[in-house]
Amino acid sequence: MHDLIASPFLERHLLLRPGRRGGLLLPEAQYEELRSLNPADPAPSWFVDAVHAQWSMSVTGRCTGDFLLVRQPSVWGYSRASWEINLGCNYQCKHCYLGLKVYSGMPLADKLTCLRVMHDAGVLWLQITGGEPTVDKDFVPPTVPRSSSA
């Protein structure tokens, strides 16, 4: 996973840090400058300063290919997607629209194809819904780092 993502967003361009709040709105010229960089190139000084100011992150002297993904413009212009991964649920909510709550969904190969299509379409934000997504047999729970006790 990349530390930073520069991407078209609707009619604009964003610089984002996955898992962090906030982002930067990039002028088109700066986005295009990032697109033209070779992965072995260092980041431009304006970029180094902006990243440090926004996230207190140092990228000085690093090759951009080591930390930056520059998403290419998509013909679809998508930035967000919502995916109903299954119809199963382990709750009994009275307001639920699912009815029978059948634990069904696509095979893993088809799910991976969907993810590739969304990636290629330029999706930056993905909302996974269900039923309850975490009961899907292919849903992998996030790993939580264990704190060391001394």
Score class of each variant (00 low, 15 high):
residue 2 H to P: 15
residue 3 D to W: 10
residue 9 F to D: 02
residue 9 F to R: 00
residue 11 E to W: 06
residue 12 R to A: 13
residue 12 R to V: 05
residue 12 R to H: 14
residue 16 L to T: 10
residue 16 L to Q: 11
residue 17 R to S: 14
residue 18 P to W: 07
residue 18 P to Q: 03
residue 19 G to R: 09
residue 20 R to V: 01
residue 22 G to D: 06
residue 22 G to W: 11
residue 22 G to Y: 11
residue 24 L to K: 04
residue 25 L to C: 11
residue 25 L to I: 14
residue 26 L to T: 07
residue 27 P to Q: 03
residue 28 E to C: 04
residue 29 A to P: 09
residue 30 Q to E: 13
residue 30 Q to N: 11
residue 30 Q to L: 15
residue 32 E to Y: 06
residue 33 E to K: 00
residue 34 L to E: 02
residue 36 S to P: 03
residue 36 S to N: 10
residue 37 L to F: 04
residue 37 L to N: 01
residue 38 N to L: 08
residue 39 P to N: 06
residue 41 D to E: 09
residue 41 D to G: 07
residue 43 A to F: 15
residue 44 P to E: 15
residue 45 S to N: 14
residue 45 S to C: 05
residue 46 W to Q: 04
residue 46 W to A: 07
residue 47 F to G: 03
residue 49 D to F: 08
residue 50 A to K: 04
residue 50 A to C: 05
residue 51 V to L: 00
residue 53 A to T: 10
residue 55 W to A: 10
residue 55 W to V: 09
residue 56 S to F: 11
residue 58 S to E: 10
residue 58 S to R: 12
residue 59 V to T: 11
residue 60 T to S: 13
residue 61 G to R: 15
residue 61 G to L: 15
residue 62 R to D: 06
residue 62 R to S: 13
residue 64 T to E: 09
residue 65 G to S: 13
residue 65 G to K: 11
residue 67 F to S: 01
residue 67 F to Q: 01
residue 69 L to D: 03
residue 69 L to M: 09
residue 69 L to G: 00
residue 69 L to K: 10
residue 73 P to I: 10
residue 75 V to M: 03
residue 76 W to L: 13
residue 76 W to Y: 06
residue 78 Y to T: 11
residue 79 S to A: 12
residue 80 R to S: 10
residue 80 R to E: 07
residue 80 R to T: 04
residue 80 R to A: 08
residue 81 A to C: 10
residue 84 E to V: 12
residue 85 I to H: 00
residue 86 N to L: 07
residue 87 L to F: 07
residue 88 G to D: 02
residue 89 C to T: 11
residue 90 N to R: 08
residue 90 N to A: 11
residue 94 K to D: 06
residue 94 K to T: 04
residue 96 C to W: 12
residue 96 C to Q: 08
residue 96 C to D: 06
residue 98 L to G: 05
residue 100 L to K: 03
residue 100 L to N: 09
residue 101 K to E: 01
residue 102 V to L: 10
residue 103 Y to N: 05
residue 105 G to W: 03
residue 106 M to Q: 14
residue 107 P to A: 12
residue 110 D to C: 04
residue 110 D to T: 06
residue 111 K to H: 08
residue 112 L to P: 00
residue 112 L to T: 00
residue 113 T to G: 03
residue 114 C to M: 14
residue 114 C to R: 06
residue 115 L to H: 00
residue 115 L to T: 00
residue 116 R to A: 13
residue 118 M to N: 04
residue 118 M to P: 07
residue 118 M to T: 01
residue 119 H to A: 11
residue 119 H to L: 06
residue 121 A to I: 01
residue 121 A to M: 09
residue 122 G to Q: 11
residue 124 L to V: 01
residue 125 W to K: 05
residue 128 I to C: 02
residue 131 G to Y: 04
residue 131 G to N: 06
residue 132 E to K: 05
residue 133 P to N: 01
residue 134 T to R: 01
residue 136 D to F: 01
residue 137 K to C: 02
residue 137 K to G: 01
residue 140 V to C: 04
residue 140 V to F: 06
residue 141 P to C: 03
residue 143 T to F: 12
residue 143 T to G: 02
residue 144 V to P: 00
residue 144 V to D: 09
residue 147 S to E: 13
residue 147 S to Y: 04
residue 148 S to G: 14
